[in-house]
Every structure is written in structure tokens, then in C-alpha cells.
Computed example of a mutant assay.
Amino acid sequence: MDIKALTSPAPQRLSEAEIADLHALYAEELRRFLWGVVGEASLVQDIIQITFRKLVEVGHETQAESRKAWLFQVAYREALAQRRRSATQKKVLETLHEDPRRNEDGLPVDPLVAQETADSVRQAIGELSPELQQVLRMRIYEDKTFAQIAEELDIPLGTALGRMRNAMIKLRGKLAWIERER
């Protein structure tokens, strides 16, 4: 074990004043940068919140002279992750919103098969935990942003995003299993 590591004090977290100063200096510039990457105001705001939350958590481990670059790198990576999640969610939502009276070839589907599919989706949603169901319904049926969901449920934004991601993964698995059974 390194004796220096044992005797040197752990870096102190950034103070609220330091974080507020960094926010005042870079938030608007980050907002403009992120607008070019994701192009959606609610996502931009969510990403800025996530970026500054990470600054609170680990910003003290960064060098003061490189914090601006660090903030932009964290924001960019989060923006790319958000775009990937949005694309996945869009695919799932399109699948859920497809006309149940037509198959993927545009041919009419038997109404009994359509009803069975709708029942399968309802059943799969019903098997999710109440927390996952709640976020899923708020996002899909009430068309709320993740920031709104987090605020209404009084949970961190990352928790709301994580619950939606978990719900989508579990639904995809459950619905794939149901399709294989047919």
C-alpha cells in the first residue's frame, strides 16, 4: 500500500459557491452546444442537470483549469447516450402505436390476433413493478418529459430515466418471449 495515499487528505468536494460560479459561467454555453447535438429543449435541460449533478459528485477530482472541457465532455457523452435511449424508446413506442389492424406488411390482421397482442402488451406492462409502470405511463400516455416526471414523483432525474430504461428493457424481453410462444 502507498503510504502517501494513506496520509494525504481526500480532495474536498466543490462548494456550492464554486458550483454556482461554474453554472453561471458555462450553463448557457453548454445549452447552446447541446441544442446543436440533441435539438430538444427539454432534453437539453435534462442533460445540463445531469452534467452538473456529476460535477457535484466528482467535480472535485478534476483539475480547476480543465473543468470547462470536462463539463463539455460529460455533457456531450450524456447527449449521445440520450440520443441512443430516445432512438430505442422511439422504436418501442412505434411498435406499441402501430395499427393493430395491419401487420408489418400492411395486410389486415385478424381482430382476434390484434386483441391478443394488445392483451399481451397490457399483461407485460402489468407485470412490471409499480415504479416502472408509473414512469412508463407518465411518459407514454401522459407525454410528460423526464424532468416533469422526476419533479412530480420527487425523485432524481437519473432515477426517472433509469426506471424508463428498465421498463423498456423488461417490456422488450417479455414481448419477445410472448412472440416466440406464438
Rank of each mutant, 00 (worst) to 15 (best):
I3A: 02
T7M: 13
T7E: 03
T7Q: 05
S8L: 06
E16Q: 11
I19R: 14
A20M: 01
A20G: 03
D21Q: 01
L25G: 00
L25C: 06
A27M: 08
E28W: 09
E29P: 12
L30M: 04
R31W: 06
L34D: 05
G36F: 10
G36V: 10
V37R: 00
A41D: 11
S42N: 00
S42Y: 15
S42V: 03
L43T: 09
L43I: 03
V44S: 10
V44Q: 02
D46P: 03
Q49F: 10
T51Y: 14
T51C: 14
F52E: 04
R53Y: 10
K54I: 08
V56F: 08
E57P: 01
E57F: 06
V58Y: 09
V58N: 10
G59L: 00
E61N: 13
E61C: 10
T62S: 04
T62A: 08
Q63E: 12
S66F: 09
R67Y: 08
R67V: 01
K68I: 07
K68N: 02
W70L: 07
V74P: 00
Y76S: 05
R77V: 01
A79G: 01
A79E: 06
L80I: 10
L80T: 08
A81H: 11
R84Y: 09
R85Q: 13
R85Y: 08
S86F: 05
S86I: 14
S86R: 11
Q89H: 13
Q89I: 15
V92T: 15
E94M: 04
T95K: 04
L96A: 09
L96P: 01
H97T: 08
E98T: 12
D99K: 04
D99R: 09
P100M: 12
E104N: 08
D105Y: 13
L107P: 04
P108G: 12
V109R: 06
P111Y: 12
Q115I: 03
E116T: 12
E116N: 15
T117C: 08
D119N: 14
A124M: 14
G126V: 14
E131F: 10
L132C: 10
L136I: 02
M138W: 11
Y141L: 15
E142D: 15
E142Q: 07
K144D: 03
T145D: 07
T145N: 01
F146I: 06
A147R: 13
A147P: 01
I149S: 03
A150D: 02
A150F: 10
A150W: 00
E152Y: 08
L153A: 12
I155L: 04
P156I: 01
P156K: 11
G158Q: 01
R165A: 15
N166H: 14
M168G: 07
K170R: 15
K174D: 08
L175F: 06
W177T: 13
I178Q: 15
R182D: 15
R182F: 11
